[in-house]
Design a protein around this nucleic acid. Structure first.
Lengths: 297, 297
DNA sequence: CTGTTAGCGCCTTCAG
DNA sequence: CTGAAGGCGCTAACAG
């Protein structure tokens, strides 16, 4: 030990890991868009859970590109990482089958698996949206616009299902003219929201299915002569600085990361209990937050 | 190759790396607070620059804790990573000396080195702040409040220096009663801003040295009877949704990440040119952005 | 061009 | 308890 200190010896972890047949406590985290604060929070949750276990996280960005996601997954498999957390870019997840990946455990975040059995942690997209729409209905709204996401995404589909279910439960028919599901960014969302406000019989409330749509809808509504009610999915920073009242469906993205990491560690660790044989699914609950109803004084 | 496909063979990267004496194209990125969007953007810049070179990024969070930073750096040194990018948590960087780290190259981001020679990429904290204050002076302001950061941080010191320099150049004395440098969060900043607004001779403009202070100042000022001018350091998302006009000193955090990664790769790669012997420092420029002056219509 | 071999640094086993 | 040796999977050098 004296010699260690004196010579500044450092054990070669690469050789050690080779000998031990491990990867060295590395897990991969593949997200679709790191620029979105949602995914930074997710990464933070994963990092904080795994840090104490001596594990480190390799972060990679798929840029919503399925090919790049697949490339990353194969790279990570070749590196013999201990496990993988993936926010999938596409709707088919056959390439994430651990059987093809040398048995590397994989856990999905924000989307359930499709075409393969995997653990997953998802948000309560359906319930959160249904509650939000219920809230609008309870406040007397019956004409509610919907700025959604493409039906091809699980999230987009679930949130629309929640919208439809709440309307149906109140005996209100879904009006196609109030439903728009293909706004790629906030600018497009603003345009669509303005269109809805200009209809002969405009909606008296609007639901936006993610933060981009919420921003667009907020701009359109707050600039309109007679502002209408707004609820959006996803909380965002500084929402409390805005002046026009609106609501958001909020959840804890850090918790999403923690639970995902926990599921993964259960599969990595040859722990006390048998490794679960059947895939486990965890749902992160949502809450509704009111913004702007009380101004800072 | 047929056999490869048939048997599903995957090369063991750990063994390969051991044989080649490399780490396997892994670099470490240590940030102080991943929850801050600034650092996600930084990480994005690092990731995008290194991805094409086949390198992967291990992300770690020091939580502004020097001990944890040191622990991470030692762990990364033991893993024989190819290099390290660090946003230092403290003001002394002796523990980041590559000499102690098995020769692992280290590049600093957002702060210049202190106590050791290292490459670094920093923001133009001084120039950006000076220009912002100049702008306020040009608009006729002579009583300008300053919501700053602790003088112990390099960033805090530089931004205050820019404030002082601009005032001095205009022949205005720095008034201690207008200067507050210890607001840990937006709530404290709001309190201080409100205090300044209540002075017998209140400032006619305020400068906030980071996004937290800007948020607090914005709240205080927008709720005040006679709003005053506001400029803040750091751009933030959704700033354009706010109604009260204000300015920010903006910069490109992704570019910061890219340049940092570039400097690091130059030291890792035994490229065509000799590895630079003297430390290199890069400065990321800032611009001023006006918000809220034109409402969306 | 194909086949064999030594050894990267470490941990585990076995012998002394 | 201390010391020597085998081998993890791969690559580079060398032999055929």
């Amino acid at each position: 030990m004296n010699a260690v200190a004196e010579l500044g010896y450092r054990r070669n972890e690469t050789a050690r890991n080779l000998r031990l047949g491990r990867s060295g406590g590395l897990i991969g985290l593949v997200v679709t868009n790191l620029a979105n604060p949602f995914y930074s929070q997710l990464a933070l949750g994963v990092e904080s859970h795994t840090f104490d276990l001596g594990m480190r996280v390799i972060l990679a960005n798929s840029h919503e590109n399925v090919d790049r996601e697949q490339q990353l997954v194969h790279d990570f498999a070749a590196r013999r990482l201990d496990g993988l957390i993936v926010v999938p870019a596409g709707s088919d997840h056959a390439h994430l089958d651990p059987g093809q990946l040398g048995g590397m455990p994989v856990v999905l975040a924000a989307s359930p698996p499709s075409g393969v059995e995997l653990d997953a942690v998802v948000l309560d997209d359906f319930g959160g949206t249904r509650n939000a729409i219920r809230g609008l209905i309870d406040r007397g709204h019956r004409r509610i616009g919907f700025l959604g996401l493409p039906a091809s995404t699980w999230t987009g589909s679930e949130r629309f299902r929640g919208y439809s279910a709440a309307l149906e439960a109140a005996g209100i028919a879904v009006q196609d003219s109030y439903v728009h599901r293909n706004q790629p960014d906030a600018t497009a969302a603003e345009r669509v929201a303005r269109h809805l406000l200009g209809l002969p019989e405009p909606p008296t409330a609007m639901f936006a299915a993610n933060n981009r749509n919420t921003v667009g809808a907020y701009r359109a509504i707050s600039a309109h002569d007679s502002p209408i009610a707004l609820t959006g999915f996803d909380d965002f920073e500084l929402a409390d600085m805005l002046t026009m009242p609106f609501n958001v469906v909020a959840y804890d993205p850090r918790e999403l990361g923690k639970r995902t990491a926990q599921l993964l560690c259960d599969r990595i660790d040859p722990g006390s209990t048998e490794t679960p044989r059947t895939p486990r699914h965890v749902v992160i609950p949502t809450t509704i937050i009111n913004y702007g109803h009380t101004n800072p004084s």
